[in-house]
């Protein structure tokens, strides 16, 4: 698999499909780090493990490089979705981007609790089935219990927050400068523990329809807050109600932005009288 991806990368560079390939390199002292390969010879040192999200890096590279510079990126499923979201949000020009899709293994999918461990454009590897996120024991437990029980559980979890902003900084989709979470109006600054409710709910809600379930926020959290469980429930709601998943279709924007005639809801979460809008439901 590694050899195959190297060959594709070499072809891309030699055929000038892109000016550089962004991937991981095993460098001096066997340290693995992101690298832009610009000649086919260099590609020998390319590696694909471990999982390392490159979407935001690709955005930074494309922003600071010369006009017309084209970049190929070695992506996993989540990375590809993140890039699609960034293209949709006008952060990356689509024409300057090439992706080399690799699939994750079943073990990796399990570890990430990933429901789609493969890219849409798969160049290398076998796509394995995703995990049914909400039926995984650890997630189930977090979302279990009735109101007060769950509230106490989450209050205790979120109170661990030391407000390092790691979840925000590691997120491949968070691009706003300045960010609302730094605004005194929304989240009181200079206090620890953080104003947990506003910080975490605002963060989670802002990503509700753009979250690609890469899990970077959770991995970055030094106090192990299971942030993905919140995103999973909202992703599930969007999937059920609107049949929408972030990062799949580059031409479909979030259904949250459109009216109910253009992006009708399945009626799951919306009140029944929304149905009165449908043409065929005339009484």
């Amino acid at each position: 698999m590694l050899e195959k991806i190297k060959n594709i990368a070499r072809t891309i560079l030699s055929e000038k499909q892109a000016d550089g390939v962004l991937g991981l390199i095993k460098g001096q002292w066997d340290i693995i780090q992101p690298h832009i390969f610009e000649s086919p010879v260099e590609v020998d040192a390319l590696v694909i493990e471990p999982k390392w999200l490159l979407a935001k890096m690709a955005m930074t590279v494309l922003r600071s490089s010369r006009e017309g510079y084209r970049l190929a990126v070695v992506v996993r499923g989540c990375d590809e979705r993140a890039l699609t979201e960034l293209v949709k949000r006008n952060q990356i020009e689509k024409e300057r981007l090439v992706t080399l899709g690799i699939a994750c293994t079943a073990e990796q999918a399990q570890a990430c609790i990933c429901d789609r461990p493969y890219p849409q454009k798969l160049d290398c590897g076998e796509a394995v089935a995703g995990v049914d996120t909400l039926s995984v024991e650890s997630v189930k437990e977090l979302l279990a219990g009735d109101g007060p029980e769950r509230m106490e559980k989450w209050a205790n979890i979120l109170k661990r927050c030391i407000k390092c902003y790691g979840c925000r900084n590691s997120c491949p989709i968070c691009v706003c400068v300045p960010c609302k979470l730094e605004d005194q109006v929304w989240v009181e600054t200079g206090v620890i523990p953080a104003e947990v409710l506003s910080y975490h709910l605002i963060r989670a809600l802002h990503l509700s329809d753009t979250c690609v379930a890469c899990g970077a926020c959770q991995e970055a959290c030094p106090v192990n807050i299971p942030l993905m469980a919140l995103q999973m429930s909202m992703r599930e709601m969007l999937r059920e109600t609107y049949g929408y998943e972030a990062g799949l279709d580059p031409d479909r924007k979030s259904p949250i932005l459109y009216d109910l005639c253009k992006e009708p809801a399945a009626g799951q979460a919306l009140p029944d009288w929304v149905n009165s809008l449908r043409k065929d439901d005339e009484s």
Partner: peptide
């Protein structure tokens, strides 16, 4: 405002899901 409140209801329904997930209700 034409369909302005459609988008509003969608956003707020999404927030409800989040409130449910965190147990606030």
């Amino acid at each position: 405002f034409n369909h302005a409140n459609h988008a509003a209801i969608k956003r707020l329904e999404l927030l409800k899901t989040l409130l449910d997930a965190t147990g606030i209700g």
